[in-house]
C-alpha cells in the first residue's frame, strides 16, 4: 500500500489504518502451527510405559508447550501490525519451525515410541523435571563455576597483558621471557592438573592457577605481537610532538595493540572454559563440570543434558559480553566480525 493513495482524505492522516504485514503473518502462523502440532502430539499420543516409576512433569511439559504455542499466536498477531516485533518474529520463524520439528521428533523417539535407549536419551519432560527439581543445585554449580572462571580469567588476562606489553616493548625482558613462553605456553593446562593439585593448598587455588595459565598464554602472545606490530610512524609522530616514554607505551602502543589483545582474550576465554570444566571434573568438588561428572556417575543423563544446555548458554553469553566490550572499546575499527 502506498502512502500516497490516501492523500485525498485529511482524516486518514489522524489515524492511519493498521498496516498488516502479510509476510510476518504467514511466517508467524507457520511457527505457531508447528508448535501447536508438537503440543498436540505430545499431549494426545500415548506415552510408552518404561520401567516402574511414573515419569514426572509430563502434564506440565505438555501444558508448557501449549502455552508456548499460544504465546506464538499472540506474538504473530501483534507482530503483523507492530513492525519491531514483526521483524524479530519474521527472522526467527524458520528457526522456530526447525526447533518444533526437533522437539516433536525427540518426543516421538523417546517418550512415545521408545526407540532410543532409555537412560541415555531422556524425553523432553525429564529435562523439565531436572530444571524444576534440581535448580538449586544447578544454580549453585553455575555460581561456583562463574566464580572460578572469573578469578582465573582475570588473573590470566592481567598477567598476560602485562607480560605481552613488557616483552613487546623491552628487548631485555623479551630475552628472558620469550624462552619460558615458548616452552611452557604450548603445554595444555589440563596436562598440569595432577601436578597443580599437589602443589597448591586447595584444588580451588590450583584451578584458578590453571585457568589463569590457559588465559595467560594467548593473551601474552597476542598482546606482544600487537605491540610489536604497531606502525613505527605512530611513534615518530608522537615523539616529534613531545611525547615521553610513558606516553608512547600507554597512549600509542597499547591502544594500537588492543585489536590484537582482543583476539588473545577471545582465545584465552575459550581455553579457560575447557580448563574450568576439566578442573571441576578432576578435583574441584563444585561447579558445572562437577555436576556433569556427578550426573554421569549416577546415570542421571537428563541432568547431564540439562547442565550442558546451561553451560552452552552461559559460555555463549560470556563470549557475547566480550564482543560487546570489544564493540564499545574498539568501535573505531572497520569490518569487524560480529558474534
Amino acid at each position: 500500500m502506498s502512502p500516497f493513495e490516501q492523500t485525498g482524505s485529511a482524516a486518514s492522516f489522524d489515524r492511519p489504518p493498521l498496516q498488516v504485514d502479510g509476510a510476518v503473518l504467514a511466517r508467524g502462523a507457520l511457527a505457531t502451527v508447528a508448535w501447536t502440532a508438537v503440543a498436540a502430539s505430545v499431549t494426545l499420543l500415548a506415552n510408552r510405559k518404561v520401567g516402574f516409576a511414573e515419569p514426572l512433569y509430563v502434564d506440565q511439559t505438555n501444558l508448557g508447550l501449549a502455552a508456548w504455542a499460544v504465546l506464538l499466536a499472540i506474538a504473530t498477531t501483534i507482530g503483523a501490525v507492530w513492525p519491531p516485533l514483526g521483524a524479530r518474529l519474521g527472522r526467527a520463524a524458520p528457526w522456530l519451525v526447525v526447533l518444533a520439528l526437533f522437539v516433536g521428533i525427540w518426543d516421538l523417539l523417546t517418550a512415545k515410541l521408545g526407540l532410543l535407549p532409555v537412560p541415555f536419551f531422556a524425553p523432553p519432560s525429564s529435562l523439565v523435571e531436572v530444571y524444576a527439581e534440581d535448580w538449586p543445585r544447578l544454580g549453585e554449580s553455575v555460581l561456583h563455576s562463574l566464580r572460578l572462571l572469573a578469578l582465573g580469567f582475570l588473573f590470566g588476562t592481567i598477567s598476560g597483558f602485562v607480560t605481552g606489553v613488557a616483552i613487546g616493548w623491552s628487548r631485555g625482558l623479551g630475552y628472558w621471557v620469550h624462552p619460558v613462553l615458548r616452552f611452557l605456553g604450548p603445554i595444555p593446562s589440563t596436562a598440569l592438573l595432577p601436578m597443580s593439585f599437589f602443589f597448591f593448598p586447595s584444588s580451588f587455588s590450583a584451578a584458578i592457577f590453571l585457568i589463569a595459565l590457559a588465559t595467560w598464554f594467548p593473551v601474552t602472545v597476542l598482546t606482544w605481537s600487537g605491540v610489536a606490530s604497531v606502525d613505527k610512524a605512530y611513534y615518530d609522530v608522537a615523539r616529534t610532538l613531545g611525547a615521553r616514554r610513558s606516553f608512547l607505551i600507554f597512549k600509542v602502543a597499547i591502544p594500537a595493540a588492543l585489536p590484537h589483545v582482543f583476539v588473545g582474550l577471545f582465545m584465552g576465554l575459550g581455553a579457560s572454559f575447557s580448563v574450568l570444566v576439566a578442573a571441576e571434573m578432576m578435583g574441584v568438588k563444585s561447579g558445572l563440570g562437577y555436576y556433569l561428572q556427578w550426573a554421569q556417575g549416577w546415570a542421571a543423563y537428563a541432568n547431564m543434558y540439562g547442565a550442558l544446555i546451561v553451560m552452552a548458554l552461559i559460555f555463549s553469553s560470556l563470549i557475547t559480553l566480550l564482543f560487546a566490550a570489544r564493540d564499545r572499546l574498539l568501535g573505531w575499527q572497520k569490518d569487524v566480525v560480529k558474534w
Binding site: 606502525d231 610512524a233 605512530y234 615518530d236 609522530v237 616529534t240 610532538l241 594500537a256
Partner: peptide, 17 residues
C-alpha cells in the same frame, strides 16, 4: 625531537582509535 619542530609526513598517520 622537540615540539617546536613538527613534522607533517607523507601519510597522515592519524591514530585510527
Amino acid at each position: 625531537p622537540d615540539p617546536s619542530r613538527v613534522v607533517v609526513f607523507q601519510d597522515p598517520t592519524l591514530y585510527p582509535w
